[in-house]
């Protein structure tokens, strides 16, 4: 799954940004004050023992994207009018609401589940099969939940970071969670999963839709960051940590996870001359390279 939200947001197109944040305060919270070693944390990227393979997949993905996929999507965005693209985006996201509801229930977030069910009902009917997101206009905003997040909520660690070729950043836990989401998806179970016409069309449209949302971000990474690979890993790790914090009942941020900012540099100096470790939390494992 291309972390459309991840890339899109960090680089500014805030389109899919709100999906994750602003959940209700209904979530169950049994979280410890600080995450244990290896738990998702915004302060440390996921462990990356397969960095060699991941780097290769990342490089290949960016090359293919630059040569073939990005130009194709520039053409798609030129040819297909925005209202049509938005409608497709809404419709495809609408089909994910039952999955979100199921995961919200598993996470103990009943208000979130209620929101997803209400959105699905309203948008599938009055919103013409989900083409229009009428529910959002009545203040019921879209929030996504997935099974990787559900596992994380109950303490399952991310496991190794994985960059899936042509798909995007993931982890062992989140990749497995994704498989569960695909095969136990309520919509797929009722209307047909992969291998059925409905399921195949849905998967095809979803792929196009997600890639269209990413735009040229994958190429633009070079302009705003110095190590695109590390940046994508960082963004993905933080988003997952945030999603799991939300599933555990933190309204938006698990502030205990945040790294310290260190002492203020000597006043009056234009440049800091730090003598103490800054930004390194001695309690956390060091990031792998």
């Amino acid at each position: 799954m291309f972390a459309a939200a991840a890339l899109a947001t960090i680089l500014g197109s805030a389109q899919s940004a709100m999906a994750q944040i602003a959940p209700g305060p209904d979530a169950a919270s049994a979280s410890p004050a600080a995450p244990a070693a290896g738990q998702d944390s915004v302060a440390e990227p996921m462990p990356d023992p397969w960095a060699g393979a991941n780097h290769t997949f990342f490089r290949v993905t960016r090359s293919v994207d630059k040569a073939v996929i990005a130009p194709a999507f520039r053409a798609y965005n030129r040819v297909v009018p925005k209202p049509v693209r938005n409608g497709l985006d809404n419709a495809i996201q609408n089909l994910d609401e039952p999955r979100t509801a199921a995961n919200d229930i598993l996470q103990g977030r009943f208000k979130g589940a209620g929101n997803a069910v209400a959105r699905f009902t309203i948008n599938s009917t009055f919103g013409l099969a989900g083409l229009f997101d009428l529910a959002a206009k009545s203040g019921m905003e879209r929030q996504e939940s997935d099974f990787g997040q559900t596992l994380g909520r109950y303490g399952v660690k991310s496991g190794p970071y994985i960059f899936i070729p042509l798909a995007g950043p993931s982890s062992l836990r989140d990749g497995a969670g994704r498989l569960v989401d695909i095969f136990a998806d309520p919509v797929a179970l009722l209307a047909g999963g992969l291998g059925t016409v409905f399921g195949d069309v849905r998967a095809g449209v979803a792929t196009v839709d997600e890639r269209a949302g990413v735009g040229d971000q994958l190429q633009l990474l070079d302009q705003q960051f110095t190590d695109p690979y590390a940046t994508v890993k960082s963004v993905y790790s933080q988003q997952r940590a945030s999603a799991i914090a939300i599933a555990r009942g933190h309204s938006q941020n698990d502030v205990d996870q945040l790294p310290d900012f260190g002492p203020s540099p000597t006043p009056g100096q234009t440049q800091p001359a730090p003598q103490k470790p800054i930004g390194d939390d001695p309690d956390s494992p060091k990031p792998s390279q």
Binding site: A6, A19, T226, A230, S242, L258, P259
Partner: peptide, 17 residues
């Protein structure tokens, strides 16, 4: 924004570089 802190991302980016 969207679960991602800018300075934390920059730190991980720069340290990796």
């Amino acid at each position: 924004a969207s679960g991602v802190w800018l300075a934390i991302t920059q730190q991980q980016d720069f340290v990796s570089t």
